[in-house]
Every structure is written in structure tokens, then in C-alpha cells.
Amino acid sequence: MFFLKFTKKENLIVLKLTNYEGHFKIEPLYPGWGVTIGNTLRRVLLSSLEGYAIYSVKIEGVDHEFATIKGVKEDMTEIILNLKKIRFKKKMEQMEKEEDPGEKFNIIINNEKEEITAGDLGEYIHLFEIINPDLIILNKNKFISLNITIVIKKGIGYVPSEENEKHINTEHINTEHINTEHINTEHINTEHINTEDGTISMDSIFTPIKNVKYTIENCSVSKNSTYERLFLEIKTDGTINPKDALIKASNLVIRHFKLLSNKKISLNYNKKYKKKKPTNENYFKLRNLLNSSLERKNLSVRTLNCLKKAKILTWGDLIKSNTTNLLNFKYLGKKSLEELDLIMKKLTIYYGMNLEDYNKNKNKNKKKNKKKNKKNI
């Protein structure tokens, strides 16, 4: 069978491989499988691979993200944008250790350098390797010193600052002189937790994948040219090798499909389960309308008086009539009928409307109320 041939190692060929870019060729594929595999891998690569990013930042003397820092060219917003671009890679010796909720690092910059780069911060971030050390974070005066605290976390995809702000722990509150045992964390306002001690939540770009492209070409197998060849291009930020990224994404897909390939799949069928009929909101609206008085819809006095004489008091009474019957009533002329037609169109009701379902439900409710009254007696 063709699918047995697909399991050979020669099916995947590496055309180009660097720390930042990888080009791969997969062939032969059964007709239609190029899109299936290419699109699946692309979506998983872009959305589901883990990475590291700064979760929150605190600079001593800065209260909020729009503040300016004396002796620093950039304001806090620009500094945050630059910090967001730093790409982190966990050092090999730390890989096997258990992950903490977040790695906190205190960085003290008291050198005479005017241009501070990501590499200068990296001297204090001993658990991680910074892939882009030349990235400029800020420009300052020579004799200005800065005390920066950052928290680096592991995550997936992109997480906005608002989401990170919700999960800032009470650790970020300055608890050096506070007995935290007696603090009721339920009453802490997490919306403003980042401004009380200067801890500012940031947008976190965890995904290590920058871009994924795939193209499909026809290829021939045993003189059959309907088979397909898949070309896959993967660009990363350098924190993961493109080949490793492809392997991780493939394993993620395999693990999820293994859940469906298990022969011992058990069907949890509950006999007592019955589908509930969806509640019809239109029915309740119609019921309230039919029972409501005609006076509520601002009908003219002349039309109302004529309808009252004919013992038509509600909209339910009106739709049971027709135009020929109404014309027989005194003083109800064409203008009054036109007035009624306009309002009835707005209310989506009409003469001779079928009220069988309404009456059935009405009778059911009456019976239920009678039973309840008997029980109460």
C-alpha cells in the first residue's frame, strides 16, 4: 500500500537549516494530503509551541507605564516595547529542573554606559540565554543608576497585558514589612495591583515561531503524477531550531490523534439524558403582547373607542378579527385600518394569525398552576 511507503525516512528532506530558518520537503503525499499536513503543521507551529517572555517589569521610582524617568531618554512605554522584543532561551542545565510560576530577576545598572542593551540585562539573568543581546533597551545619562526587576515566564502564543495583570501574584506586592498571613487576598483589587508598588504587567510574546509558509507541487510515483510534494518554510526567533520546532509540532498532533485511535474508546451514554427543547423567546414575547392592552401602542382615541365598543380590548382579540368585520363597525374607517396595519407590521402580527401553539402552552400552564394550588391546599 502507498501509506506504508510514506513511513520511510526519505520522505522528509532538509533543504536548508539554520538557527533561524528551515526549509523542508515532504514527498510523496497522497492527493489532498499536502494541504491537510501543511495547514495542520502551520497552525500548530504558530499557536502551540512554548517559549519564554517577560511577564512583568518594575523600575524603582516609576509608578505607572506612562511615566518618564529622570536622566533616561525613553519613557516607560518605549522601554516596555523594547523589553517585549527580548528573546529568551532556557539554559540546558536548567531544562530538567521543575518550572517555577515565574523566574524573578533583580537588575542593578550603575555603570557609566549611556546605551543599555539586552546583553547588559543578561548578566543578571543567569538562568536564560538572551538571543538578541544587541537590542537597545534604553539610553541614559552616564551617572544615572537604575534598579529593574523583571519576571520571566513560560507560556504559549501571545498573552496581552490585561490578561497578565489578572494573574499577578501577591508576591509582586512589597511584603518585606507586612505579615502576609493576615492579608485577605480576596479583597485585593487586581485591576490596580500593578500601580501600587510599580509592578507593570506587559504583553508577552511567548511563541518562538515568526512565520510559516507552505507550498504544494505535483510529483509522480510509478508514472502517476497525481501525488503531491509539500515544501515547508519555518522561521524562528532563534530560541528554537526550526527542525526541533517541526518535530515538536508533529508530536503534538500525533498525541492528540492518539486519543481518537485508541481501540478501547468507551461511549458514555446516559439513557436518562434527554435533549431539552430550546426555549422559544419569540413565544414569550408574543404571549405578553397578545395579553397587553391596545392602549399601550399609542393608537388614536377614535380608533381605541371604536375597538372598545366592539369589545376588542387586547391585541389577541384584534388578530382574531379581519378587515371585513372591522369595516362593519361604526366610525372605524380606512384611516383607522391603515393605522392598525402599520402598527401590526412593526409588531410582526397579522389578522387570522395561527395561535394553536400559544393556546396549547397556555392550557399546559393552567393545568400546572391548578396542580400546584391543589398541593398547597
Rank of each mutant, 00 (worst) to 15 (best):
T314N: 10
L307C: 07
K248G: 00
K90Y: 02
E186V: 04
K153H: 06
G38N: 09
L355S: 05
E123G: 07
F284Q: 07
N218Y: 06
V159S: 08
M1G: 06
E27K: 15
E112K: 14
K213R: 15
S48L: 09
I240L: 08
E171Q: 09
F329G: 06
V72K: 00
R255A: 15
L246W: 05
K345E: 08
Y331M: 11
K5R: 12
S261R: 02
Y351Q: 00
N365L: 13
G34T: 04
F88L: 03
G352W: 06
L289Y: 03
E171T: 02
G61D: 10
S225F: 15
G32K: 08
K235L: 04
K113N: 07
G122V: 01
N189T: 03
W33K: 12
Y350R: 14
T40S: 15
I86W: 09
V57W: 05
I144H: 02
N82G: 03
N184I: 02
N288R: 11
T199N: 13
R42S: 14
A249K: 03
V35A: 15
E60N: 13
H172I: 10
K73V: 05
S336T: 12
L332E: 05
P208T: 11
S161F: 01
Y124H: 15
L17S: 11
L29P: 10
Y55K: 14
K210F: 11
I312Q: 03
K142I: 00
N280H: 08
G198F: 10
P31I: 05
Y358D: 02
I13T: 13
S48G: 01
L289H: 06
L327Y: 01
F284A: 04
K16S: 10
L232W: 04
F2C: 02
P242V: 03
D100I: 11
K243L: 15
K140D: 13
P101Q: 04
E123A: 07
N82P: 08
N169M: 04
L340A: 12
E27H: 06
E99V: 14
N110H: 10
I80K: 04
K89P: 08
V14D: 05
A310C: 05
I254P: 06
G157D: 08
E233V: 07
K85L: 10
E50V: 06
T149Q: 14
E181S: 15
Y283A: 09
I173V: 14
K276D: 15
N363V: 08
Y283L: 14
R87G: 14
K330F: 08
H64G: 08
L332N: 03
L29G: 07
K309R: 13
N328W: 02
E171R: 11
E50N: 05
S56C: 13
E98L: 12
I125D: 08
T77I: 00
K248Q: 12
I37P: 02
S266K: 11
G71T: 05
K154L: 09
T77G: 06
C219F: 00
P28R: 12
E163F: 05
I130Q: 00
G119Q: 07
F2T: 08
F88S: 02
V35H: 13
E112N: 15
G38Q: 13
Y331H: 12
L46V: 06
P208V: 00
S220V: 10
